[in-house]
Amino acid sequence: MAHAVISCLHANHAALEAVLADIDQQGIDTITCLGDLVGYGPQPNEVVELIRQRAIPTCQGCWDEDIIEGLNACDCSYPSQLAERRGHLAHQWTAEQLSEENKAFLASLPMSLRRDRLLFVHGSPNSQHEYLLPNMDAFAALERVETAGADTLFCGHTHHPYVRELRDGSIRVRVQEGVASGGPSVEREINLPVRRIINAGSVGEPRHGNTNATYVVHDEATDSVEIREVTYDVERTCRAIVESGLPAIFAWRLRHGFEYAERADDASHVCER
């Protein structure tokens, strides 16, 4: 059975409609959403309502969390003052627009979803704000999947779709315990299990070089993963950005395939707060 995983819709209604149509047309009826329904884009209520109407199981994204609980992203997740001010502006605008009912829906979303050995999260099993980038240290990446007790981890948040397989891992250690506990030094080697991270990319705010929406389809029968790119009516969303009173620069950035506000260089950074 094939199932689709979508993430980071970011209040882009045209993109979500196009992606759902692409999924429907393949006859896939299991969809999982990894959060960030809102943030930056012009149609937060429409997007939340479409997800609710289609009853798509969804976990909570960093934006969904922040809209409910007030800004949780620490300043260090923005690489510049400009990005931070734009992020805050988008946050404030979205918080004002969202209906109470839709806010309550976002607040009700779980941190993660699990189906057998498949785990679905927004950022990482540790936090909605942690980025699992494709070039992240391979051991650290494996640790995230392994500690969470999963074989395959589906995540989003980076807006960069990828499939990463971690295999043939081993670690050799020499362990020595203090005399207080007694015991000589022991060498041991552990073999690490094969694990996989699948990042679903972003429906509403691409950051992969062009303007297409991305998501993934996982076929459980063959265990294969397809990264899908979908064109949509970008201009419709750009017009809505300008009409809604959001900064016109957001429309310019979306139209050129740039993220609305840039990300910190050290994307693995998780604030200690």
């Binding site: 690489p79 510049s80 003052q81 400009l82 990005a83 620069i249 310019w252 950035r253 050129h256 840039e262």
Partner: peptide, 17 residues
């Protein structure tokens, strides 16, 4: 200027934003 903001702004400026 915030240096990182300057580079974002300059990028937008010369690319037609």
């Amino acid at each position: 200027w915030d240096p990182a903001s300057l580079s974002s702004f300059w990028f937008e400026l010369v690319n037609g934003a």
